[in-house]
Design a protein around this nucleic acid. Structure first.
Lengths: 198, 198
DNA sequence: CCAATTTGTTGCCAATTGGCAAGATTCTTC
DNA sequence: GAAGAATCTTGCCAATTGGCAACAAATTGG
């Protein structure tokens, strides 16, 4: 019986749910993660740098964003507790990131480096499967978001987000939610007005 | 010196470009793939079924599509020779696919099953890396497509597609290209008219 | 607690895109 | 090669969304 930190306990639960394996194995894995703290506004990843950490967020909210050709800040994703946070392309291809990831509230989590992750992947097939599951899950989510962006109206997408991710609205300004939905803050404001009058 | 089929030779080149490994190892891997032929219009994957093949397309064009809530056929992707074709979520999670994939021209390729792929992943770390590279590449492409869908006008996206993937226009009807771009065929037609008058 | 900044809303108008239906064009298929 | 089907274009109008600017509201930082 080891005495895992609460953060590592959360990760053990998360790992075993994502891919079946023994708790002791998951605990070994979680033991390799080190604590991370980010104060509100702090960056986890800055564009132009290589993402070198694979973070399991245990508390707080984070936001990924990129700048479009006109210099507008576009939200590419929100991240909450019990999610894995990293920039896929930069992390795995070892190239500078085009995205930023920052804490929109104070955050705590536990992380491993690229090197450690690869060691673990190499020695533990189960952790490899876990890693693949995270990747496939992210890919699948994005595919469904893409489809809804193409086929649904902004109002529908907004209502959907409100229903499935209400917590985002308590932590992120509407402006950043608007760009996540693919619209301007002006349009989002109008949509909200429209809905409130029902 | 083995005598690989032309399809397998193509795959060897493709593998070694995606992830550095010896040609003999890549040849061993390619040797595990079996030939696949699809006549024009034939399905590689039907929605509701589990994607069980990991296909390396050596000739022809394919299209992935799903139906939106109104029953409209929405193109989720085009695939050309020297690309890996499969539905990520269905294949790795072993769940029924919500997408269809069909041949829009006669196609040839070579494939492996889910089981074989896992055997190879298990025994060959290099092939695992190759597999991850494919996954990460697909993810990255989708992220950039998502960003351009949100930030760029339909006209810009059309011109971009025309420049980077002109071959698609020789094989896919405009209607399916329109839904890929996230617009209706009517709008695409107008955009084309607008551009031609310049 | 107040000034300064950020965030959200609204009005006005323009640009983009969609829906529908008719017609033109192209392509299959027998 | 002709009939039928699928594809593409166009006109008309409506709905959605954006751009800009002003204002209001909320938040932040001394």
């Amino acid at each position: 019986m080891s005495s895992l930190s609460p953060e590592r306990s959360l990760l053990v639960d998360f790992i075993t749910e994502a891919y079946p394996m023994s708790v002791s194995l998951a605990s070994d894995i979680a033991g390799r993660f080190y604590p991370v703290r980010l104060s509100k506004g702090a960056f986890f990843l800055k564009e132009g740098t290589i993402c070198n950490e694979y973070l399991f967020l245990t508390d707080g909210f984070m936001r990924s964003y990129a700048f479009d050709p006109d210099g507008n800040d576009i939200t590419t994703g929100f991240h909450r507790r019990k999610q894995v946070v990293f920039e896929v392309s930069s992390f795995f291809h070892r190239i500078p990131s085009r995205e930023n990831i920052h804490a929109i509230t104070a955050c705590t989590g536990i992380a491993i480096t690229y090197t450690t992750l690869n060691e673990l992947f190499h020695t533990l097939p189960e952790f490899r499967e876990f890693g693949r599951s995270i990747l496939v899950g992210g890919f699948t989510n994005l595919k469904s978001r893409m489809l809804s962006t193409i086929t649904e109206t902004a109002e529908t997408r907004y209502l959907q987000l409100l229903k499935t991710n209400p917590d985002i609205f308590q932590h992120a300004p509407l402006r950043t939610i608007a760009s996540y939905l693919g619209i301007t803050d002006t349009s989002l404001s109008r949509i909200r007005k429209e809905i409130s009058g029902k």
